[in-house]
Amino acid sequence: MIVADRKPIEEILNSIKEYDKIMLAGCGGCVTICFSGGAKAVELLASQIKMARKKQGRAIEIIECTPERQCEYEFIDQLKDDLKSVDAVLSIACGVGVQAMSERHPDTITIPGLNTKFMGYPIEHALWDERCAGCGDCVLEWTGGVCPIARCAKKLLNGPCGGSANGKCEVDKDVDCAWQLIYDRLKKLGRLDNLKQVRQPKDWRTSTNAGQRKTKFEEAML
């Protein structure tokens, strides 16, 4: 899932300071699961904004909504009529949702209320960890299911570096060293041979280095 954090309230208030009526749009997808952009987050943020604006002496009207997924046209197209009456949309979907909204409703300004961070999952209640960098050329087959691209601070394919100590990464002592994890898992699986081979330089063309990526599923194309 995509994990995002809410922007600081001061930044949000500043970004909507010139508007008197906005739509606050959440998303029923990933950001609902990570608490930053679901229906509850919409409700909470709307009251925070209203209170702050009242205090500033410039009340604001807010239309609250949480489409099932803000990243799909069919769900955000339904907002068209409501959008006619607002000055802007404050979106608390991920960056994908914000862009879908902007693209589908080009006459309305859409402002992001979240900072989109990574693809990952919760490792315990209310704590998410990054797992995938979307590099476009998966290496998990030989790494014991631990991604060194997303989880090693140096993206090493022949790690670990000299800063791995007590299972932790030198960059952040709260983060596991991906290469220690890879070593431990492969050892358990009896596949340490996987690490003896010198891994060749990665072809980054499948990553973000070749500009915006596209993908299509031929069989399903209309």
Partner: peptide, 20 residues
């Protein structure tokens, strides 16, 4: 890692690693 230096805001490269 750039975290330890005087430009922690910098992007790192690590296009290839030391073995490569």
């Amino acid at each position: 890692h750039q975290k330890f230096g005087n430009h922690p805001q910098a992007a790192n490269v690590f296009d290839i690693d030391s073995v490569q």
